[in-house]
C-alpha cells in the first residue's frame, strides 16, 4: 500500500509522535487562555522542560521521571510568570515574551555539560506482538506512552472544560473575571493554577523533544515549536479536539513534505516547505468560519485585581 513511494501507515504513525510536543504545549496554553491569561512564554517553558526533563532522566536513569521533571521545570518557570502578572499585575504580553527569552537563556546556561549525552530511551509501551499487526499495529499500538498520554489529555481537557464544574469556573474566570469574583471565586488563584498547569504541559512537551523525539540535549532544541503551539491554540478556537487536529495536521504535513522530497516528488521544495504552515492555518480557519461564538475568551490578556 504505497502512494508515490510513501507508505501511509508509517506516515500516520510518525506524525502522531512528531505532533506530541506541539500538542501538549498547545493543550496547556488552551487552558491558560480559557482562564483569561495570555502566556506568550510557551517556547521558554518548553525549552526549560526539555532541559529539566533531560537532566532528571540522565541523572536518575528513568525516562518517566524525566517527563515528571520536565513538567515540574515548566511549571516552576510559569510560576514566575504567574507571580509577575497575577500578583504584581505586570503586562501579560511583555512578561510572556520576557519569559521566553529568559527560558532560552537559562536553558542554555543550565545545559552546559549536557551536550552529547544520550538519555535513557523512551520505549514503545505495548508488546511487539501488537505493534507488528498489519496497518493498525504501527498506528495504534506502536507508540511510546507519551503519545497515548497526549491523546488522553485531549479527551480529559475537552471533558473537563465542557462538562465539569471546574471547567465552568475556569471559563467563567476567562470570560468575565468581575462576575466570577462577584460569585466568590478567587480569580487570581484559579488563574495561577491554570498557568502552572499550562507550564507543566509545555514542559512535558519540551521534554518529549529532548527525551524521545531527538533524543539529546542541544541548545535551542525546541526551535520555535512553542510559537507554533500558540498559533494553533488561536486557530483551533481554544477547543481541545481542534487543537489535536491542528497539531496532527501540522506534524503530519511536516513529515509528509519530507517524505515527498525523499520520494522525489515533482512539487518544488519551496512549496513543500511552506505547506505545513499554510495548510494548518487554512484548515483551522475554514473549520471555525461561519460559526458563532468562536471568539477569544472575553477577558483574555486582562489582569484582575479585587480592589473594585
Amino acid at each position: 500500500m504505497d502512494f508515490g513511494g510513501i507508505n501511509p501507515v508509517i506516515l500516520i504513525a510518525t506524525l502522531m509522535a512528531s505532533a506530541v510536543p506541539i500538542l501538549m504545549a498547545a493543550l496547556g496554553e488552551a487552558v491558560v487562555e480559557r482562564a483569561g491569561v495570555l502566556n506568550l512564554g510557551v517556547e521558554g517553558m518548553m525549552i526549560i522542560g526539555a532541559l529539566g526533563g533531560f537532566i532528571v532522566a540522565v541523572e536518575t536513569g528513568s525516562p518517566v521521571l524525566g517527563f515528571v521533571g520536565g513538567a515540574v521545570a515548566g511549571a516552576l518557570l510559569s510560576l514566575i510568570f504567574a507571580l509577575l502578572t497575577q500578583v504584581f499585575l505586570a503586562n501579560q504580553v511583555a512578561t510572556g515574551l520576557a519569559l521566553t527569552l529568559f527560558g532560552l537563556g537559562v536553558s542554555s546556561l543550565g545545559g552546559q555539560g549536557y551536550n552529547g549525552i544520550k538519555p535513557p530511551s523512551t520505549t514503545q509501551l505495548l508488546p511487539d506482538a501488537l505493534a507488528d499487526l498489519p496497518v493498525v499495529g504501527p498506528i495504534l499500538f506502536g507508540h511510546d506512552w507519551m503519545v497515548y498520554f497526549s491523546i488522553l489529555m485531549t479527551a480529559v481537557l475537552w471533558w473537563v472544560l465542557k462538562s465539569t464544574r471546574i471547567g465552568l469556573i475556569i471559563r467563567a474566570v476567562g470570560e468575565s473575571h468581575e462576575a466570577a469574583h462577584a460569585l466568590g471565586y478567587k480569580v487570581n488563584r484559579i488563574r495561577l493554577m491554570c498557568i502552572a498547569f499550562g507550564g507543566a504541559m509545555a514542559g512535558m512537551g519540551g521534554a518529549y523533544v529532548s527525551l524521545a523525539r531527538v533524543p539529546q540535549w542541544v541548545d535551542g532544541i525546541t526551535a520555535g515549536a512553542g510559537w507554533i503551539a500558540l498559533a494553533i491554540v488561536v486557530f483551533a478556537s481554544w477547543k481541545p479536539w481542534r487543537v489535536l487536529i491542528g497539531a496532527y495536521l501540522f506534524g503530519g504535513i511536516t513529515v509528509l513534505q519530507l517524505n515527498l522530497q525523499v520520494a522525489g516528488s515533482a512539487i518544488p521544495v519551496e512549496y513543500l516547505s511552506m505547506a505545513p504552515y499554510l495548510i494548518t492555518i487554512l484548515v483551522l480557519v475554514i473549520m471555525s468560519a461561519g460559526r458563532k461564538a468562536n471568539g477569544a475568551p472575553a477577558a483574555l490578556g486582562q489582569n484582575f485585581h479585587a480592589s473594585r
Binding site: L11, S18, R213, V214, A223, N259
Partner: peptide, 18 residues
C-alpha cells in the same frame, strides 16, 4: 534550516522510512 534538531530528526526519519 541550519539548526532545528526536531526537523533534522524528522528528515532522517523520512529517509529511513524510505
Amino acid at each position: 534550516t541550519w539548526f532545528d534538531p526536531a526537523k533534522e530528526a524528522d528528515a532522517a526519519k523520512a529517509l529511513i522510512d524510505q
